[in-house]
Design a protein around this nucleic acid. Structure first.
Length: 258
DNA sequence: AATTGTGTTCGAGT
DNA sequence: CACTCGAACACAAT
């Protein structure tokens, strides 16, 4: 599934391809959790120009000329396709048609990818925002004793990190995923903030390098730790796997604070 | 051809 | 009551 760096790449590419186009029509085919009626979405967005596409947490935001925003959450398997005139992709959720006869379709075989009209502003900072800095995380990590991986995955605390990148980030920071969040020393929290930023930005670079025009799917061959094809970390430690409702990959190089 | 993977919600258990 | 954990969603890729 796409995580933050993938979505970041998608948003750049979609912005390049779609910004400036005007919405002609919208078809809602299977959006169980859309927060407004099909008619309201159509009435609001038809005729508006798409100003910008960008990423917010794990969602893509399409911002229109009158200020309306269409949020797209891809969930586990959502995929985007651009098309001319019509498309033949299976499992469509929603289709946007533009006035030059091109279109954008969101599909999901699980039917759980979710469009949202004018999503509420979230309190939690985006993982790449400067608001998710040392001060914020230090204070926030003190408030809970759950393990640090769970905290990184909690979208109410910091938005955008998923299962795979949580493992990559924690290895990069050399913090065990099972560490109690309130036991991580100050200098390690500093390192964690640096690791969040550098792991996510580096991944985005790798993804764009591998596929400059990517707007869906995922590329993860380059991942160092959360990678079933690898047995050792770049520094030679055996990669361990803990099976849970999601898998956690880690090595003994990561210090456990408890 | 059986296994694996992925975010979020929700209900049950501690 | 607060928290933690697993199941479900339903298929593609291998």
């Amino acid at each position: 599934m796409p995580e933050l760096p993938d979505l970041q790449a998608f948003s750049h590419n979609l912005n390049k391809k779609l910004a400036g186009k005007t919405v002609k029509q919208i078809a809602v085919i299977n959006a169980k959790k859309l927060n407004v009626s099909h008619k309201e979405l159509q009435d609001k967005l038809a005729g508006q120009k798409l100003d910008e596409v960008y990423r917010e947490g794990k969602e893509l935001y399409l911002k229109f000329s009158k200020g309306d925003i269409l949020g797209l959450h891809l969930m586990l398997h959502g995929k985007l396709f651009l098309f001319k005139d019509k498309h033949e992709n299976k499992y469509p959720i929603i289709e946007l048609y533009f006035n030059d006869d091109t279109g954008l379709v969101l599909t999901d075989f699980q039917g759980i990818a979710t469009p949202t009209l004018n999503p509420e502003d979230k309190d939690a900072p985006d993982a790449l925002s400067k608001d998710a800095g040392v001060d914020y995380l230090t204070a926030r990590l003190q408030k809970t004793k759950t393990n640090i991986k769970t905290v990184l995955l909690d979208q109410k605390i910091i938005r955008g990190i998923g299962n795979a990148y949580a493992d990559e980030i924690l290895w990069h920071a050399r913090i065990s995923p099972f560490s109690a969040s309130n036991k991580i020393p100050a200098d390690k929290v500093k390192q964690l903030v640096k690791s969040i930023h550098s792991v996510l930005k580096e991944a985005e670079k790798q993804i764009i390098k591998a596929n400059p025009d990517i707007i869906s799917g995922e590329i993860r061959d380059f991942m160092n730790i959360h990678n079933a094809k690898k047995t050792k970390s770049p520094t030679g430690a055996e990669i361990q796997v803990k099976d849970g409702s999601r898998k956690t990959y880690y090595t003994e190089e990561q210090e456990l604070y408890s």
